[in-house]
Design a protein around this nucleic acid. Structure first.
Lengths: 250, 250
DNA sequence: ATTTCCCTGATTGTTGACAATAACCATGAC
DNA sequence: GTCATGGTTATTGTCAACAATCAGGGAAAT
């Protein structure tokens, strides 16, 4: 029960084709193999995954409900492309839900769960200090931290909404905007304070600290976006395609 | 753009069978025609709605993602049955999301939208006072109030999560537990204060009032449940099946 | 030259049939 | 009498073919 990070581990109980291809597609989208905004064609995917269109369509319907693809009747489906506006909306939702999760975690988390949370924290710090360039792992590691708190809330509905819906969108954003963690040391300090508040059972403080943590992350993203816009303006008509919104070729 | 209440109005742009049957099933579940916990058989539903199993299964996959049905591979699907624990979890999520919605509404709502909100409020009051027994409408009416605030947040992701996911579960609970609105006059007062806070642009107050509003509703439900448990205990082994959890026949 | 219309191609929507799995019931052994 | 075991049946999972709809291109008319 160490890590919830999704590496290539697809076949966690995939007893049906539709289930398996759903997880595969979810992974492919989040990892950027299916680029954001690219069109999805049913015969193509069916051949790629070696299945018929029936189960594939069911998987796509689930992806649609999870907001990972968008679909227009009789036209087709395409991988969702997060605009900056939608990304900021996503942060507002995270602020609301994760602050509530932190509050509930402070109320319900067991000592074992708190200890596991601390373990994850020191593991990240060591890894982060040792190999700064290997921020790839810190990416998922940050999510691990949040995963554990959400699980600590002991609220199943909150867990599924955050872990099964929102966090996939968060990871999609990280690939779409090629965004690394950013502000690691400050985040570590905030993480520690949050854990301390949870460990001491201070609901109010835990909620407030998590709220500010998410707000700070949101602000970092917003500032970075503003800066990239300036860059685009400076570079005028050169190849400043850092955050441009043109459709990637299929 | 008066009311968002769902009466029999299914065919709002249902260009495909799967879409149409999805909405029909959603409605049937929420209205109690498909009782909570009842088993769903594909051939049965396919014949009932006069379609094939293909589109039906896609609709069911969407319902599954929206948590209105639960599905076990090779076994079957059944309408979700909210336990009291899950119901309280639902209230925690509402507290988090709706308080955020109220904050954003205070920030973004236009004067027109605020006026529409006030109109809905007085309409409900008149109706509620005139015909107390007709609490049926007050039910959906209460949701109308919350709908308008969520829409006023101008956060599309929040809108879909609350309106397309959570609110259907709320309505399902209302039919499952045969719960009427309860505490109408106190709720009216709270509604008014919330609207005032939103109108004055006081984000902090709007969020806090909405949070307390949801908490109060949650507490009412919890107390009512405790009372019903007492009733069951008093009635001993008679037909005290107010909140029992036995499976309805298919 | 531009616009409109139609035709072609491809993709999506839908269907019915086939295969696989699991629940149910009866039979038999201990 | 109880438990294990087998067969039967119904339901789910999957597939390939058919029908309907939309996008794109080219020809004809203004």
């Amino acid at each position: 029960m160490t890590s919830t990070t999704s590496s290539g581990e697809i076949p966690l109980e995939a007893r049906t084709l539709a289930e398996r291809v759903f997880q595969q597609l979810q992974d492919a989208i989040v990892r950027g193999e299916l680029p954001a905004g690219s069109k999805i064609t049913e015969p193509g995917l069916a051949q790629t995954y070696g299945i018929s269109r029936g189960p594939l369509r069911e998987a796509m319907r689930r992806l649609e409900a999870h907001r990972l693809i968008e679909r227009e009747p009789h036209v087709g489906a395409r991988v969702v492309k997060l605009s900056m506006r939608e990304l900021l909306e996503l942060f507002d939702m995270r602020e609301a839900l994760e602050s509530m999760a932190a509050r509930l975690a402070a109320r319900h988390m067991t000592t074992d769960e708190v200890q596991a949370l601390r373990d994850v924290l020191v593991a990240h710090e060591e890894q982060g200090d040792l190999d700064q360039a290997e921020a790839y792992y810190q990416r998922e590691g940050d999510l691990d931290f949040h995963y554990l708190i959400v699980r600590g809330s002991h609220n199943r509905m909150l867990m599924t909404t955050l872990c099964d819906d929102l966090y996939y969108l968060v990871r999609l954003y990280r690939t779409q905007y090629s965004a690394r963690g950013g502000r690691p040391q400050r985040a570590f300090i905030e993480h520690h304070r949050i854990v301390d508040a949870i460990a001491s059972g201070d609901e109010e403080l835990a909620e407030q600290l998590m709220r500010r943590h998410v707000i700070a992350a949101r602000q970092t993203v917003a500032e970075r976006y503003a800066m990239s816009l300036d860059d685009d303006r400076d570079l005028s008509k050169s190849n400043g395609r850092a955050l441009s919104r043109r459709t990637p070729s299929a």
